[in-house]
Write a protein that binds this DNA or RNA. Structure first.
Length: 379
RNA sequence: GGGGGUGCGCCGCAGUUGGAGAGGCGGGCUGGACUGUAAAUCCAGUGCUUCGGCUGAAUAGGUUCGAAUCCUAUCACCCCCA
């Protein structure tokens, strides 16, 4: 059982895109990769066989805050960790709860020591510190676990962004100290990734990326983006961070993004992504395809009895029709959200795999420039 | 056949004791939003319009300064009795 390793295999001549392989104790991950989000230990509407077969997922996410509230660490420890609990035997990454500092802003209080959350389920109060976040993630048993950070809101004034970033750095030191002095619980190696913050301020991001890199962990993450800023800001900050973060470790851009975001950020040197868009938007009827996105609820699909994606990567989408999926989602049928989620995730995984192949061949930049306008179409 | 009741906008429900309302809630429908999941959620629109207004409370009359509200007839539906 060994620490996570990353092998950089190809770099694209026309961009900063990279292809590599991450090896964990639960198997390997070919990058660039998209990681489906399974907040409470379940990728909403999708079961594990579908994730593996139709979708080709290599790693999924879980969330510390949500899993801590339900089912709780006692159950997860009793099960032998999240992999045993939910039946996913490939790699798992857990987010630390740092995003909930942002998304549950009205239900939490931040102090230097940590954050007090009021549960969105029953209103009870819970204290998360860097040490607690490490302990809980140890209990959940993710192969990759995230440092406890503050994801600041956008827009965010300079003073707040700087103070927040500095606290995130102090919290990182506490995470590392605690993580390094606690054992792996389930016989395989867990790996802690730190997170760059600094909002959209270049000097803060530079400082943060340098600080994060200096901790020399097996991988590094960029957080605090895709919180409402313009795409150009997202790309500008992502590029700046990638240029500083070491080349011999995977770079994870947290919470991103749309298909176009993925390609643009791969071009800047990002290796790992996660986002709720493919599953959440699927449940809301928005489908992503290589020819653009479509709202399957729209009237124009009512009598379209052609496959959802006739020559796409997803068997489910080659079999079921647009009119049927429209009917299911209109009717509030669970199957509608399931089919759409499988479709979108299969597409996202296909897209990053295509990106990888084009990086390997060396024509990624050209391919990306051809793909982006197509992906931006509305069907 | 007799008696009683109820009729409004795509649908349902509420409400309206002569000073109306292009109105409430829910649903449907039509769009939109969603980025480390408080999200199978949320927002908007849903008579016509030249954006000033116009038409409208089953239908047709009537009373009244004024009617969705009162009266008459007709129609539809519901209930009770034969």
């Amino acid at each position: 059982m060994a620490k996570l390793s990353f092998t950089l295999e190809h770099t694209d001549p026309g961009s900063k895109a990279r292809a590599g392989t991450i090896i964990t104790d639960h198997g390997q991950i070919e990058t660039p990769i998209f990681m489906p989000v399974g907040t409470v230990g379940s990728v909403k509407g999708v079961h594990m066989q579908e994730l593996k077969q139709d979708i080709g997922a290599e790693i999924i996410l879980g969330n510390t805050y949500h899993l801590y509230l339900r089912p709780g660490t006692e159950v997860l420890e009793d099960a032998g960790g999240l992999h045993r609990f939910n039946g996913w035997d490939k790699p798992i990454l857990t987010d630390s709860g740092g995003y909930q500092v942002y998304s549950l802003a009205h239900r939490r209080k931040i102090k230097e020591e940590g954050v007090t959350f009021q549960s969105h389920i029953d209103g009870s109060k819970h204290f998360f510190s860097p040490e607690r976040a490490m302990d809980i993630q140890r209990s959940i048993g993710g192969d990759i676990i995230m440092a406890f950070d503050e994801c600041p809101p956008y827009p965010c004034d300079y003073r707040y962004a700087k103070d927040s970033m500095e606290m995130t750095h102090r919290w990182l030191q506490r995470c590392v100290d605690h993580f390094d002095t606690t054992p792996d619980k389930y016989g395989y190696t867990q790996n802690l990734f730190p997170i760059v913050q600094g909002s959209t301020y270049e000097d803060l991001r530079r400082t943060s990326a340098e600080t994060i890199a200096s901790f020399d962990r097996p991988g590094n993450a960029i957080g605090g983006l895709s919180v409402g800023e313009k795409s150009d800001d997202m790309y500008r900050i992502t590029e700046l961070c990638c240029d500083i973060l070491p080349t011999d470790k995977p770079r994870y851009l947290m919470g991103v993004g749309t298909p176009v975001n993925l390609l643009e950020c791969i071009a800047l040197g990002v290796d790992m992504f996660d986002c709720v868009l493919p599953t959440r938007n699927a449940r809301h009827g928005l489908l992503y395809t290589r020819n653009g996105q479509m709202n399957i609820k729209n009237l124009k699909w009512k009598n379209d009895h052609s496959p959802i994606d006739v020559d796409g990567p997803c068997p489910t989408s080659r079999f079921h029709t647009k009119a049927y999926l429209r009917h299911l989602i209109h009717s509030g049928e669970l199957l509608g959200g399931q089919l759409a989620s499988i479709h979108n995730l299969a597409f996202f995984l296909w897209l990053v795999k295509q990106a990888r192949e084009h990086i390997q061949v060396g024509d990624f930049a050209r391919w990306k420039d051809k793909m982006v306008p197509k992906l931006q179409q509305r069907l």
